[in-house]
């Protein structure tokens, strides 16, 4: 790890492109995933609309247009921030292939992050815009009133990917200590799904659960970008929300780097 440095901009761009292309080859799976996310979106939005009608127009401050935007942005984010797990790196740790990553002249976390950003970009094309376009055509979306909303959302979505990457990396790195991480992954999946606001908006929760959710990084994955998209959070509040996401991103990345360092040392000491 002595030569561990950040990749040059050119190398980083190449890594992002590689990640993008790698996931571009799973065309059938991508399409099937988009269809699945869309189908669940239809059911979820039907439930939320029924709730809004029962409540006389709006639930917890979300009217029908906001609920639609919430649903389709959240369903689109599932693949972008990988809310349904993935144990690829843990598998590399288990088989020992991780040593190859550690032997590269750039820091492995930087390499993986670049690849993951490429993957997220690829996921955007079909799995984010697909359900969103469907939802917009069939159910209608709330149109942003402020020009700043779109760029703010883009930044927030990128930060969401970094936070998600760091969380998944941490969970996968548990493989250094626990050879089978499937159990940890399934618990992580449940926690992140509820507390990110994917299942229902966090504002629907009773107070204590809202407090619990806001104490974790998970709202940074879905709820924060969504709230910016539906303009529940605007202006200075939006910048503060981005700052919160950025703080989680930096903190979790640092934790992941440190954990990898400890794990590697363990690998070296025990000889794999």
């Amino acid at each position: 790890m002595s030569a561990a440095v950040l990749p040059s901009p050119r190398a980083a761009a190449a890594l992002v492109r590689a990640g993008f292309r790698r996931y571009a080859s799973y065309r059938a799976a991508t399409l099937a995933g988009a269809v699945t996310n869309t189908f669940f979106g239809v059911v979820k939005l039907s439930i939320l609309f029924a709730a809004a009608d029962a409540a006389g127009g709006a639930v917890a401050g979300y009217d029908r247009a906001a609920l639609s935007t919430y649903t389709w942005v959240a369903q689109g984010m599932i693949a972008v921030v990988v809310l349904f797990g993935g144990a690829e790196l843990a598998e590399r740790v288990r088989t020992g292939d991780v040593v190859i990553d550690l032997g590269r002249p750039v820091h492995p976390v930087a390499v993986w992050l670049a690849e993951d950003l490429g993957r997220a970009g690829q996921a955007c094309l079909v799995r984010f815009f697909g359900p969103l376009a469907f939802g917009g055509l069939v159910f209608g979306l709330s149109v942003p009133r402020q020009p700043a909303t779109v760029p703010l959302f883009v930044v927030s979505a990128v930060l969401a990917v970094v936070v998600s990457f760091s969380c998944r990396l941490l969970v996968n790195l548990v493989a250094f200590w626990l050879l089978d991480v499937r159990g940890v992954l399934s618990v992580y999946m449940v926690a992140s799904n509820v507390l990110s606001g994917l299942i229902v908006p966090i504002a629907f929760f009773p107070g204590w659960l809202q407090g619990l959710a806001r104490a974790t990084p998970f709202p940074a994955l879905v709820q924060v970008p969504v709230d910016i998209a539906v303009e529940r959070v605007t202006g200075t509040d939006a910048l503060l929300a981005l700052a919160g996401q950025a703080a989680w991103a930096v903190g979790l990345l640092a934790a992941a780097v440190w954990t990898l360092h400890r794990g590697t040392r363990r690998l070296v000491v025990q000889g794999g």
């Binding site: 439930i47 050879l179 499937r182 159990g183 399934s186 999946m189 299942i199 229902v200 009773p206």
Partner: peptide, 25 residues
């Protein structure tokens, strides 16, 4: 067996996850 307990827990929680939605709405 190592991760069976955690997987069982995940499986217990998965229904809880769905119920959170019912409860919240």
């Amino acid at each position: 067996r190592a991760s069976f307990a955690l997987e069982l827990l995940g499986s217990v929680l998965v229904i809880g996850l769905d119920f959170v939605e019912v409860y919240a709405v």
